[in-house]
Design a protein around this nucleic acid. Structure first.
Length: 802
DNA sequence: AGCACGCCGACT
DNA sequence: GTCGGCGTGCTC
């Protein structure tokens, strides 16, 4: 029996299965999807078994060294999903497997130097003392000394020492130690008498004699006011025993969930739920696009569909964008389905993620709520996959494997023959176009649940404000309304799509702009740390008072960030209580929740924030939403700029007036006539869709064309340009003449982390040998990628064009 | 990725 | 002559 193994060496040449002999002792336990340790060259590494076969075409095989799992970590379906990903995103099979599993399941390889038996006395003195503790020495401890390395190499040759590969599993189950009596209670009573000099020990035994149940060490210490050492003494006397019990790290341990029941549905909700239930009933794969305005109660539809799935004994996956994975969101699911829910988000530690994964793997939960990667949940009987806010770009992973969770969901939905529900108030153009074509089943909800009207939207032309002499960042209208809300004790939300204090710092004398020395980007000023920061490479420097170029004093801040707005607010509305929420104020664990809690408790009048306040917030007392600069994203070099602007404006506007009080929205813009702003102000998705589709048609972008972006980067500009140039000409010769090739051009961000970047774009409708051509390119440059710091990144269907 | 193998220049 | 520099190619 042999096993085909994908080894953990992410390179082009090793991106294929390797054959290994299965030793006798493993034959009965080995299955595809298990992790194994295999010899690879002189090393020992991790690998995944992808299949087990009778024999190999090769004559001599090495043997599998060890098996790391009792049950496969990847089931047959997920192995297939892995290979499918490999093909769809041009990634290595090993990367595909690893992205589907929690990081804790990736082993760590450590190299040790071991003294051979009987050769201890042959060690030279200078090194012998390093071996003092035991007979092995971690390789890393020698790495800083060149002489040592040379010496060890000699010793290796002389067979005095050998290198041992230590493979350690990172995964670690959390355990708690329980204490119970080791002997019967009668005997314990006798023993107590003998301990008349150890009062604390007697107390502990007395606790058990009086029928105290087994508890953890910590609880025992707590209850009896004793210490660990006292308990240990009794354990040593063999009167008590320690029992190690495995527990889950539960991030929601201390929270109580009030049980919620299904809410009565509105006519519209019931109407969209119907076909989803039918699809579950018929065990048929179908993709639904649920288009429901903000506040239309999409979540309740999801909950009731999941309920049906659970009653059928199946499982459900719910994806939500990372930023809306707030405790409130989790609460809704845990409230309805209790302990059957696992939650995945980036805030969990490695161990916590592993525990949540294990609950799914063991079948202890039936529902998973999580961000992008939760789409790989190892369920075996999926009944529904839901993607909320399906237009969100965070569903696309921006490093390898560059997959889109939506594609994975639909692929898995097909395997499991279950419905996939894509929900959004502002569906992506791609999805809506597919729904219109009948590829997806379109479902719409036009009314808000409590029949509140959509908020009134007021667009303010900031150019006009300037002409009127208002140079502040708040228009007259917005300021008046803010004052009005404070007077009425109602709350407002202010949205600005930019953190920090100001966008860039420029010298008014000579025009010098402070830029990052490693990236071709201007640095952003952060007031609190009084530093200039690069948002791409984290470069940081102190602010200078003089222009670094001409030493003029006229160095000024331009643009606006959340920090600056906060300061301005304090000036124009001195009494207002403002809460700021952005990456900088929510870094600490739980900070996010705290801010929202404070706002919900009416401890502030104004919530000021970036992206992260755009989603899911639902505060009844919010009646005003102000969008300070609606056009910040509009002029980015991205064909989705208008779409993203429309989506964001609509999402943010949706935060206002969700309950009894009518809401109002003020949009400040320098280009108020732009169709994305106009349609957003009228809450007109369909109008926007039509206008944007015309634009995409004219310019040849998705959904009319598929797009692939190739970015070439290298520390040397010429090299980067040359390679990109050659790639374009290769593609020109190999792709059909119906496809359009753009480039090579300098990337919109010409340099990041000292690497120059060139890119080209392929636009195509059908291109059957695109993937093979791209693989050919990567293969051709393999050597340069390996030895010459060349990078070629290929993104089939990119969401980031910079 | 890592590691061995192998072919050239600068030294005991 | 040999040590060690790095380019090349392989790993079941």
């Amino acid at each position: 029996m042999i096993a085909k193994v994908i080894v953990d060496v992410p390179t082009n040449q090793t991106d294929r299965p390797f054959d290994y002999e299965i030793p006798e002792k493993f034959i009965s336990i080995i299955e595809p999807g298990m992790r194994v340790i295999v010899p690879f060259g002189p090393r020992k590494i991790q690998g995944f078994i992808v299949s087990v076969e009778e024999q190999s075409e090769l004559k001599s095989l090495k043997k599998i060294i060890d098996v790391l799992d009792i049950t496969p970590v990847l089931n047959e379906e997920l192995i297939n999903v892995g290979f499918w990903l490999t093909d769809k995103t041009l990634c290595f099979a090993i990367s595909a497997f690893q992205v589907m599993l929690p990081a804790a399941l990736k082993v760590k390889v450590q190299k040790d130097i071991v003294v051979n038996a009987g050769r201890e006395n042959d060690l030279p003195e200078q090194i012998a003392n390093k071996f003092s503790s035991g007979k092995s020495l971690p390789w890393d401890e020698l790495m800083n000394d060149k002489e040592d390395i040379a010496l060890i190499k000699q010793l290796l040759k002389k067979d005095i020492v050998t290198v041992r590969y230590n493979v350690k599993d990172r995964k670690q189950e959390k355990t708690v130690i329980f204490i119970t009596p080791a002997i019967s209670l009668e005997k314990l009573r006798e023993e107590v008498k003998k301990l008349d000099r150890a009062k604390k020990q007697q107390e502990i035994l007395q606790y058990f004699i009086e029928g105290g149940e087994e508890t953890t060490v910590i609880q025992l210490c707590d209850r009896l006011g004793t210490t660990r050492s006292t308990i240990k003494a009794l354990v040593n006397k063999q009167l008590l025993i320690e029992k190690e019990v495995e527990v889950y790290r539960d991030p929601f341990q201390e929270r109580e969930f009030t049980k919620s029941n299904p809410l009565p549905l509105t006519t519209e909700q019931a109407k969209v739920l119907e076909p989803i239930l039918t699809s579950i009933e018929d065990k048929k794969h179908e993709t639904f696009l649920l288009h429901g305005v903000t506040g239309s109660g999409k979540t309740e539809v999801y909950l009731q569909a999941i309920d049906k799935v659970l009653r059928d004994g199946k499982e459900a996956i719910v994806l939500v964008p990372e930023i809306s994975l707030t405790p409130q969101m989790v609460l809704r699911f845990k409230g309805r389905f209790g302990s059957k829910v696992a939650v995945f988000h980036s805030g969990l530690s490695q161990g916590e993620k592993y525990d949540e994964w294990r609950k799914i793997h063991r079948g202890e939960v039936k529902v998973v709520v999580g961000a992008r990667s939760a789409v790989f949940a190892p369920f075996t009987n999926i009944g529904i996959i839901i993607i909320d806010e399906e237009h969100e770009s965070s569903y696309k992973q921006e490093d390898n494997p560059r997959y889109h969770a939506r594609d994975v969901a639909i692929f898995r939905g097909d395997i499991h023959q279950c419905p996939v529900v894509l929900g959004s108030a502002t569906p992506s153009l791609e999805s809506f176009a597919r729904a219109k074509k009948g590829v997806y089943h379109l479902l719409s909800i036009a009314e808000r649940v409590n029949e509140t009207a959509m908020p009134e939207v007021d667009i303010v032309d900031m150019r006009e404000e300037l002409r009127q002499g208002n140079r502040s960042m708040f228009s007259e209208a917005l300021l008046e309304k803010l004052k009005d809300r404070i007077a009425k004790k109602q709350q407002s939300v202010l949205f600005l799509n930019r953190r920090g204090f100001s966008t860039f710092v420029m010298c008014r004398e000579c025009g010098f702009v402070v830029e990052c020395p490693h990236c071709d980007l201007s640095l952003t000023y952060h007031r609190k740390s009084h530093a200039m920061k690069c948002h791409y490479c984290n470069f940081e420097e102190r602010v200078s008072d003089l222009c670094p170029s001409c030493e003029s004093e006229h160095i000024r801040f331009f643009g606006t960030g959340t920090q600056k707005v906060e300061e301005e607010l304090a000036k124009v509305l001195p009494g207002a209580r403002v809460l700021r929420m952005d990456v900088d104020t929510t870094k600490r664990k739980g900070a996010h929740e705290k801010i929202l809690q404070a706002f919900g408790d009416q401890n502030a009048d104004i919530l000021l924030g970036t992206q992260m306040i755009a989603k899911g917030l639902d505060f009844p007392n919010v009646t005003l939403v102000g969008i300070l600069a609606a056009d910040t994203m509009l002029h980015l070099p991205d064909f989705r700029a208008a779409e993203k602007t429309f989506q964001l404006l609509t999402q943010v506007s949706g935060r206002a007036g969700r309950h009894k009080l009518l809401g109002e929205v003020v949009i400040q813009s320098y280009t108020p006539e732009h169709y994305s702003i106009q349609y957003a102000s009228k809450h007109d998705y369909l109008g926007f869709y039509d206008a944007e589709m015309q634009m995409r048609y004219r310019l040849g972008y998705p959904p009319y064309y598929f797009v692939t972006l190739i970015t070439v980067s290298h520390p040397n500009v010429v090299k980067a340009a040359n390679v990109c140039e050659k790639i374009v000409s290769y593609l020109n010769n190999n792709l059909s003449d119906k496809s359009i090739l753009l480039g090579p051009v300098v990337s919109p961000i010409a340099r990041i982390k000292d690497r120059y970047r060139y890119q080209c774009m392929i636009k195509y409708k059908v291109e059957s040998n695109l993937v093979s051509s791209l693989r050919e390119i990567v293969k051709h440059y393999n050597k340069d990628i390996h030895n010459d710091r060349l990078q070629i990144s290929i993104d089939l269907n990119p969401y980031m064009l910079m």
